[in-house]
Amino acid sequence: MSEPIVKISGLNKWYGEFHVLRDIDLAVQKGERIVICGPSGSGKSTLIRCINALEEFQEGEIVVDGIELGPNLKHIDAVRREVGMVFQSFNLFPHLTVLDNCTLAPIWVRNIPKKDAEETAMKFLERVKIPHQANKFPGQMSGGQQQRVAIARALTMNPKVMLFDEPTSALDPEMVKEVLDTMVDLAEEGMTMLVVTHEMGFAREVANRVVFMDAGQIIEANTPNEFFAAPQHARTKLFLSQILR
């Protein structure tokens, strides 16, 4: 087995007195798709936000593509350049057009000339199937379109790993599919993905591994087939029985 692209070992995090992540160990291989699920408040968001240093942590170590992110959060910038993130609430920049949203980081972080950045951005907007709306403002688009722009925006930085934090849970049902389709496309191109989601259909179709978390710990991790067909832990069974009615 080659060196994992994301390696989390002995990760512990507290919010004040509250122990929100407990001894998390997780290794993600290049090209692997991992779905993280679990009840609300189990620490899923906190975990993936630690990977690109949006949250600090007190113990343990995260290594992304050979760059080490310790509790003192050195190398934040280097890690963030390798990791793209898509949020539940899109977080597009409302005062910039779709195109400017997608060129901002390449221009200001990677110092790419504006023209080249715009070309790349259009390429990614085409991939998420919204090239015609490049000059609209985010507020003029539907939720599904906004989320696809958010995906394109993250991709313009050529990340090696993509993090998704419940990308579809703020969307109306008919828009969920268009975003999931985009993510499936991305998976088929071989992107390494860590996805927090409750879309079990997506997990079955795309994931290499499903990780179940509860109370800040990883309770069970398995291939989707095994995970859904034969959950081992009592909490997993309970969770699945509630979610797959």
């Binding site: 949006l54 963030r80 949020f87 977080n91 597009l92 920049f93 200001w108």
Partner: peptide, 12 residues
């Protein structure tokens, strides 16, 4: 979320 999104893109 705005500054988080910007930070996640690597902006200082």
């Amino acid at each position: 979320g705005q500054s988080e999104a910007a930070a996640a893109l690597g902006l200082s």
